[in-house]
């Protein structure tokens, strides 16, 4: 590949061509993508943010109300509970998915028998949508049909396990289903990362007499940094858009104990016919993602070029 940045010298002395038209075909080919990015992502995001400062009800209108929507949003108990729920769910989900995913992958990587079969079994839940996952777990956790019923019918009549009907632990009910669905995929990513580790690293560790667990923690995991980052992005984006699992399992209940921000946005926009409030809430979600992701992505990907 010739360096495209160096302007080619013209023999006949005419002006160099406008850089805009260089590589015209590839630029044309990229145009749809550029337009999509500009119009759909940037344009619609801007439109949403602008309208979050209006009093739009069922239809988007430009009747400015300043920061009223945001003021209302942060005075709404349900929104605060939603944020708290998401934070809790996020922290637990992130830690457990990574730990369980990596452990499973490491176990599978020990050249066990029937590896393909186990891999398929662990990955299977990921093929189900959150709605199906939610419904299945709603039945399993239902006190009259699921685990509680089974254990009680075995003779332990005092046994109580009804996370979906108990406001203080409903989040853990959601977490169980979320982990069941999501860890398989993380495990596969991790496994791919483990397979990318050079066999010589293991040999060297063995020669030095380092125990296996220590090799994992001190050598392998630091080497797998890019894989962990990929997994992290996949898990976090899944957490922030958490919605369907809640709808299928609890519909936000009992009471409003398992509400999440995405559900608040949907309910305000479509059920309450209050677009302005929904836009304000979704702008806050965008802001949260931006605050977390931008500096981190900059450090992670932007800084690398100088190495």
């Amino acid at each position: 590949m010739p360096d495209s940045n160096a302007a080619p010298r013209r023999v006949d002395g005419s002006r160099p061509p406008n850089p805009l038209f260089r590589n015209l075909t590839s630029k044309l080919a990229a145009l749809p993508m550029v337009l999509t990015a500009l119009v759909v992502f940037i344009g619609c995001t801007g439109w949403t943010i602008v309208h979050s400062f209006t009093g739009s009800k069922l239809l988007p209108k430009l009747n400015w109300v300043g920061f009223d929507q945001y003021e209302k949003l942060w005075n709404t108990r349900r929104w605060l509970i939603s944020i708290e729920n998401l934070a809790l769910y996020g922290i637990f989900s992130l830690c457990f998915t990574l730990v369980i995913g990596f452990t499973l992958a490491a176990l599978l990587d020990r050249k066990i028998r029937f590896e393909a079969a186990f891999r398929t079994i662990f990955l299977y839940p990921f093929a189900l949508s959150f709605i199906v996952t939610g419904l299945v777990w709603q039945w399993i956790l239902n006190p009259d049909l699921g685990i509680q019923h089974v254990v009680r019918s075995m003779g332990f009549t005092g046994f109580e396990f009804d996370p979906l009907y108990n406001a203080s632990i409903v989040l853990y009910g959601l977490l169980i289903a979320g982990l069941w669905q999501g860890t398989g995929f993380v495990m596969v990513i991790m496994l791919a990362g483990l397979r990318g580790i050079d066999e010589d690293v293991w040999k060297a560790a063995r020669v030095d007499g380092i125990p296996v667990w220590k090799t994992y923690i001190r050598v392998i995991i630091p080497m797998m940094r890019p894989v962990f980052i990929t997994a992290l992005v996949v898990i976090t984006s899944g957490i922030i858009k958490l919605y369907d699992l809640v709808v299928a399992m609890t519909a936000g209940g009992p009471g409003i104990a398992s509400e999440v921000p995405a559900k608040y946005v949907y309910d305000r926009m479509f059920s309450s016919q209050n677009l302005g409030q929904g836009f304000a809430a979704s702008t806050m979600m965008l802001l949260a993602v931006a605050i977390i992701l931008i500096p981190w992505a900059y450090l992670e990907f932007g800084g690398k070029k100088h190495d």
């Binding site: 009800k57 349900r78 009471g255 409003i256 309450s272 409030q277």
Partner: peptide, 19 residues
């Protein structure tokens, strides 16, 4: 009442009722 206000009342009462 508008749907917006009705939904807010609903959020309040369902929380009250379950807690």
């Amino acid at each position: 009442l508008s749907r917006d206000i009705l939904d807010e009342l609903e959020d309040l009462l369902t929380e009250f009722w379950s807690d």
